[in-house]
Every structure is written in structure tokens, then in C-alpha cells.
Design a protein around this nucleic acid. Sequence first.
DNA 1: TTAAGTGCAAAAGCTTTGCGGGTAG
DNA 2: CTACCCGCAAAGCTTTTGCACTTAA
Lengths: 151, 151
Amino acid sequence: MDEREKKGRLEQFELLCSERGIPCTVQRRVILEAVLDHGDHPTANQVFTDVSASHRGISRATVHRTLEILSRLGIITKTCHPGKVARYDACTDIHHHLICLHCDKVVDFHDEGLNSLKVPDTSSTGFEISDFRVQLRGICRECRDKQDEKD
Amino acid sequence: MDEREKKGRLEQFELLCSERGIPCTVQRRVILEAVLDHGDHPTANQVFTDVSASHRGISRATVHRTLEILSRLGIITKTCHPGKVARYDACTDIHHHLICLHCDKVVDFHDEGLNSLKVPDTSSTGFEISDFRVQLRGICRECRDKQDEKD
DNA sequence: TTAAGTGCAAAAGCTTTGCGGGTAG
DNA sequence: CTACCCGCAAAGCTTTTGCACTTAA
């Protein structure tokens, strides 16, 4: 993410904090920055590693707690993964996912056609829908190559 | 899932096994049945509980190993969840998901309009797409009600 | 017969929790 | 000043692995 946009997101975060009376601590800013910088869909552990590289002494527990808080604020979001650990995402513009059913890799995919999908009526379900994602599921090139080797 | 369909899926599984020379053990059949019966998106632990109710001595390790194998065979599938544990799905017909960003609940949603979505060209990505899912993201009724209580 | 699967128990990862000291507002 | 947050360490879950025994084909 470029510097200008990042700065905007950090200001947005500080605004949200003061609106809701939530302390805006150093750790929270640093962890948010790490997610914004990471690009794809880091796990809590990856965020912890990134953060530790520049700031001594931020604990794993804080990373977990903070990621949860940030996603409740809506400033980042939990992504839907086929894997076994939680993953987070810097939730900027609408985008979609290519998913490898073999190695669980998830890659962002931007496409105007998908963005203009009409969300159907869900009123009977009790859900209030705010946005949507399309998952395109299949096999990535690396996994295909590995399969071919075996043959 | 009704008995007739279940029987069909089990036969399909036995066929797949013999095609690929993979042993079709009691445990695998029982675990597959448990997923088919479960309905929504059980975790390995839920499958283990279901299985243990009717069959003594099937270990957790086997449940994990088997779920992985069944999903590689394509007879079940890993679902994409915002949570922290792997979840599986009896992958029958195409369907979509309502996702609560508050409590991570995932509910199946069937809709003809979504089914007919045109999959875009992904040739530049190296992925070979076999199907797709739409995630409708928002807040479920229970979580909305809880929020209202607080106000 | 024999390659592969299974159970058990132990190890390895990921996440949460309780508590005393520290900090933002 | 005060409520909330943080780091630490320990506990709690989920998943994986090594090995001896069993089983499907």
C-alpha cells in the first residue's frame, strides 16, 4: 500500500478510536501498519514476525487481541480461508479470491465484471449484507506442475 | 441428506477408491457418512464427536488424516471460513454462503441467479478454475439483536 | 502377502487467559 | 486519576508425527 493511502487509513483508525473512546496505543498503530504493509492475507503469526522486526517486545497475545479488535472496528477484516488458522486482510476496495484447493493458497483477483454482481434478496435469512466476495476455486500452477511430475 | 443420496455418495466413494487403488476402510466410510449427515460445515472435532457416538476407538488423528484424504478425492471439500479451525463440507451441488462478520457463522444460501454467474478469464493467473462460491458478508440477526440490547 | 492404514501417545502450533505493572485520556 | 491495555507465562485447543500393529486388496 502506498504511503499516502496508509496515512489515510491510520488517521481513519485514530478517528474511530476517539469516536468510540477506545485507546489508540502504539501497539495498535504498529500492528495495523503491519497488516496494511503486508499486502495479502497474513496470519497472526506473520503479523507478529513483521512487527517484531521493527519493534521489540510486542507480545503474541497482544497481536491476537489487537487483530480481533481491529476487525471488530472494521478497519481490517478476517478473510475466509480453507486453512487451519485465522487470516486477516487490509480490506480496502472490493476484490475476489482465487483459491487453490490443493495447497490452500489464496490470491487476490480484481475483476470489474464480478464487482458488478447483483446481490440477491436475503431478507428471509435475517442477515443484513454489507458486501460480497467471489471465490474462484481450482488448482494453482505449482500444484498442477507437482501432479504432472508424479505421472 | 436423505438415505438414497447418501447411498449414492458412498458408492461414488468406493468407486473412486478402487479406481485409484486406495483402500476403502471402515473408518473412511464412517467418517464420510458423518460429514454427509452433519449438514452444515463441521470441524474435525465435530466429526470426531459424531463418529465416536456410534463407533468406539476411532482416533482423532485418523479423523484429521481421513478428512484431508476425502477432500483431496473431491468427495467432500474444505470450506472457506473466517475462523481458526479447518471446516469441511459435503460438497454436493453448487451453493453460496452467508457470512456473519461478527460471530463467524456461515450459513448455506441457494440462489439460481448467483449460480449462473459467468466465471471470468483467469488464464493469466495460472489457476485452473473448477467452480466458484459467492460469499455474502454482513451481520446475522442474533448479532444485530445483541448490539441493540447494548444501546 | 504386503503396502497402506490405524491407534496411541507425544510433540508441535496456534490462540486464550489471568495477573501485576504500565499508560492513554 | 482511573479504566483500560500490555507483557509474561501458563493453560487450552487443534493438528501433526513416529512407531508398532492391523487390515484391505
